[in-house]
Amino acid sequence: MRTKIYTLIFVALAFLINTKSFAQEVNLKNYRVRFGLSTTKQADNSRKLEVSYIASNKKDRKDRVPIYGADINFYNVTEDKDILLGTAKTDKEGTAQLIVPAKQAYTANAEGYINLKAVFDGTDALDSEEDELAIKDVFLELNLKEIDSVKTVILNAYTLDSLQTKIPIDETEIVFSIGGMISNMPIKREFVSDGAFKFEFPEHISGDKNGNVDVFASIIDNDNYGNVIQKKNIDWGINKQITHETNKLWSEAAPIWMYVVLSILLIGVWANYAYSIKNLFDIKKEGKELELKSQNEN
């Protein structure tokens, strides 16, 4: 039902937009186009490919126009051919995102780098754009353990070579953070060498109502690895009792005493009214009888 209505609205609006929106002739020479590819390996091992496609005015730095609705093709570049991973359109912020599932196999080059490429084919007005990225596939192993009753965060980070042997990564900044609703809170930043790092989990970290916390380990915008995120959920937070107050002056239900006082007052008063009115009817009744009597007498 709802979707129907929305479609209706949409149709109506599409019409409106068509009439209202107007095309503006712009000299694209004044604009420098920025086309950038980035990638993030997410906690479920899927990989997010993201292109940001924005035109910015050469003179007025504040004038940035995102390119909307451009088709971007994402490829895995191998020595012989480019394997198409998928296509996405840019949104109103000029970004196109493609989530490549975890099971996708990439072809890496001899050094273990995966070459990724995003391509915009170009139109009459816009030139074609292309951006390439070479990253290594990193595996972050995040372990949360209590060692001698000390809550410890253990991280192992490695890449795999062609023989599937683990090669620990070196001198890479890894950020550990706690999951938050709006944004994650960093608790540790460390340059990891030899692919392993462990530290004591800080005290006084609040969790959700069951005390569960999301612990994140991430590599951010690394030249070799791109972005990598790993997360684990554990009940190391402070178990908070979330109570909701009821029967306060401001809550929906009033304090009990208020109901009691009000009812007593009202019942008392209205009972008296009823009593008075009842008596009025008694008076009327008597008067009627009197009238009847006098009529009879007459």
């Binding site: 008597e286 008067g287 009197l290």
Partner: peptide, 10 residues
């Protein structure tokens, strides 16, 4: 006047 006749009971 609801039939008020000023009788003593009324």
């Amino acid at each position: 006047a609801i039939k008020y006749y000023d009788t003593p009971t009324q």
